[in-house]
Amino acid sequence: MSELLDKFQLYFQFPFVRYALVVGVLIALCSSLLGVTLVLKRFSFIGDGLSHVAFGAMAVAAVVGLTNDMLLVMPVTIICAVLLLKTGQNAKIKGDASVAMISVGALAIGYLLMNLFPTSSNISADVCATLFGSTSILTLTQFEVWLSVALSAVVVIIFILFYNRIFAVTFDENFANSTGIKANAYNLLIAAVIAVVIVLAMNLVGSLLISALIIFPALSAMCVFKNFKAVTICSVCISIFCATAGILFSIIVSTPVGPTIVVADIAMFAVFRVIGAINSKRNKI
């Protein structure tokens, strides 16, 4: 045990480990906040599509040689979020079909660009890193850390300020509209915030695994709790716990960070599922 502590102490002397942990926890916090809304509004497919868009934008940023790719990736992802939501609502092209088009298109273009204009000798490692986020969380610059802190703060503040209205819009859009809440405006807000979260989370788990980070904590919490507030709080706790555990574990055993966190989330989901089943059985007796 003391050996383990020594090891942690040693690791924590490196700033990159501290950065990784701070940013990891913040990302976990943000991604779980909107998970409940996303799952319930059937927006989870948008999350998936957007992460691929972010991948494509990242490839473009790399090719163009931007030193700070967030400046390109963030606006592109937000615009796509808004577009996806709009097309999803006017059903000329079916919502999920248009998401599939955009997400697969972005993946293909991204990979093509990375191959045509390689920025390093090992392309597949680069691609793998963007898809599964293998090391980027450990190579954060101080600027990126501060940017993540600022964006997380914005996400959390928006969520808290609009919490009651987000609940109303998620629960019953028609009624919300009738009380003068502009449901569509809130849908756009939610989509924009999701885009921000996704771009943030790419650093941690890579673009393919982001949806897991958003959805699993919410689904776990929904197994056990029956009101919105408890579910939200619980999914935040689960998400932060899994991210911390996953990051520490991966540093010690040197597994890839993203998949380790996601596996922790899956394990947690199994646990909550069982608790939920036991609870409902007990209620029936």
Binding site: N164, A176, T179, K226, F228
Partner: peptide, 23 residues
């Protein structure tokens, strides 16, 4: 509303739903 199609498993307590009318 005529039909409130609330998603299956939507976690909302009675109090949360009622008070949302105050918005």
């Amino acid at each position: 509303p005529q039909q409130t199609v609330v998603q299956r498993d939507f976690p909302a307590s009675v109090f949360e739903v009622v008070i949302s009318g105050c918005l």
